[in-house]
Amino acid sequence: MTVYFMCIVLLTMGLYCLVAKKNIVKKILGIVIMDYAVNLYLIIIGYKTGGVAPIIEPNMPAATLERFVDPLTQALVLTSIVIGLGVLSLMVAMCIRLYEKHGTFDMSVISKLRG
């Protein structure tokens, strides 16, 4: 399906950042972009054509219940975003520590230093 195309583009962009770039900050950005690609994919997979948010309102016609998008994937993405934030904060903290120790963000320089 062409709708999934953008997800794949986003994921590939993130993977490119992760593999090709030497700067750690850019690597972290790549991981975050991949994270959001997966989140976007999960949200798209739960979508129904003509879907509405799964919130029951007073005096709502019963037919609207059929048009609710999948609540399970939305709950999963909520979890995924929070965990992504935790992982991101830990990565950034380690990045700050590395910069303090070596004075550079360049991965190839840091790996040559060895201790």
């Binding site: 399906m1 999934y4 798209i44 997979i45 739960g46 979508y47 609710f68 999948d70 609540p71």
Partner: peptide, 21 residues
């Protein structure tokens, strides 16, 4: 891409989601 192409877009997929609704 090949793996995702087989998934239809815009229809209900999980039965558990319908159960929750």
């Amino acid at each position: 891409g090949v793996a995702l192409m087989a998934i239809p877009f815009g229809v209900a997929k999980t039965q558990v989601g319908d159960h929750y609704t």
